[in-house]
Design a protein around this nucleic acid. Sequence first.
DNA 1: AAATAAATTAATGCATACATTGACGAATGC
DNA 2: GCATTCGTCAATGTATGCATTAATTTATTT
Lengths: 233, 233
Amino acid sequence: MLPKREGPHRMAEAAKSTRVEAAYERLKGEIRTNRMPPGFQAPEPEIALRLGMSRTPVREALIRLEAEGLVELIPRRGVRVLPIRAEDMREIYQILTSLEPDAAARYAETRPSDQELAPLEQATADMEAALESEDLDTWAEADDRFHQILLDLQGNRRLKDFVRALYDQAHRARVVTMRMRGPPHRSTQEHREILNYLRAGDGDSVRRLFKQHRTRSAEELLAILEKYKLGQL
Amino acid sequence: MLPKREGPHRMAEAAKSTRVEAAYERLKGEIRTNRMPPGFQAPEPEIALRLGMSRTPVREALIRLEAEGLVELIPRRGVRVLPIRAEDMREIYQILTSLEPDAAARYAETRPSDQELAPLEQATADMEAALESEDLDTWAEADDRFHQILLDLQGNRRLKDFVRALYDQAHRARVVTMRMRGPPHRSTQEHREILNYLRAGDGDSVRRLFKQHRTRSAEELLAILEKYKLGQL
DNA sequence: AAATAAATTAATGCATACATTGACGAATGC
DNA sequence: GCATTCGTCAATGTATGCATTAATTTATTT
């Protein structure tokens, strides 16, 4: 019997058109965009009502969101959207600083073609353009895109999923702090350099720069959180 | 049978005496011990029957196990215990090689006291003793304990949970391959050295050795998997 | 005998029911 | 007034029911 791999590997989490899936996506969206802000709390029946379905699929979606670290299920009080404390950001950035540079370095060692790197080039160019026109939202989107693409290119699936979950957790804090600092010249520049070394297949340099990139952004972010006493977002 | 060691800290995962919890623990146990071997498949109702409860709590437990990468829920065919392929082990060890050394190095920088390091000393001593008496099971238990303790000591909770999940995934493959190689002198020795540098507060050395430790064990394991054509466990 | 269609079976996805139990406020005692 | 007990209410944890539909088997056609 042949390996019956079903068709295309799910491209972008192809929605299975199931209610659980719908609930999951919608709730995740609400959380990411702060429509359900950190600390928000509601009992399951209320969520179910809002989503127009019964508790069962909502519950299953919540269990997944809990596993991803976005919400907490408190025994008699419903779901709570997890706040992001400075300590959480520290944890997240520690992990990213360990994982991403190594992953990027490994990828560099595969000597990726220009064609393969094109999306990264695009993202970098977009960052530069957005920086020029001081369009922070677009900049943030391109930044995010850069990292996502790199995650996809590097082959480790477990790493990808985990890091993505961390991005999701950190996203809200980044959105809030983004406007509390000057234009991200440095960060943009670093992306450009990392891309150059990727193109050159220079893993060690990629690792070094990426590590520096993450270390610096972590420091900046934490400095802001402390400066504005945003102990909890 | 291992004495269920529980850190003196919070009993975070204290069994909530709920059926979901029971199902989760039991299924996880069955999978770890290969009573439900990789590739094993069964519909939800059958699992529920075996566990003596309805499908609901079983389902919730399965969703958690799926999030942890131990099983797969296939739409009309029930749960499947995920096989571990060489590629999976490669992924897992890549991540461990990035995360653990940095985490251990950070911990070393905190200049842990001898008292704090006592459990690690114990684990290392146990490994040495087990190696001496050629008791592989005890050796493996102590090895696992060493890494678990270090995970607990290092402060990053997200890192801990994730790495633990990876251990769980890799556990089965390690059990199988353990007896296909000579006595782990080298590995034991490395633990001792890492411990020494932890005691000395020498983060850089800890990182370097730990990285080497993981790199080597990954190579050994993969070599065995390929030699015996254990492409899939 | 191969191919196709129809019938059967059974697993999932979801809704709903319900007992238990914690939360919270009212009533009570000091 | 303050602490305590009691009662009500609601949320969870779990069981059960059911429609849908994939998988499988049987029947039918060629």
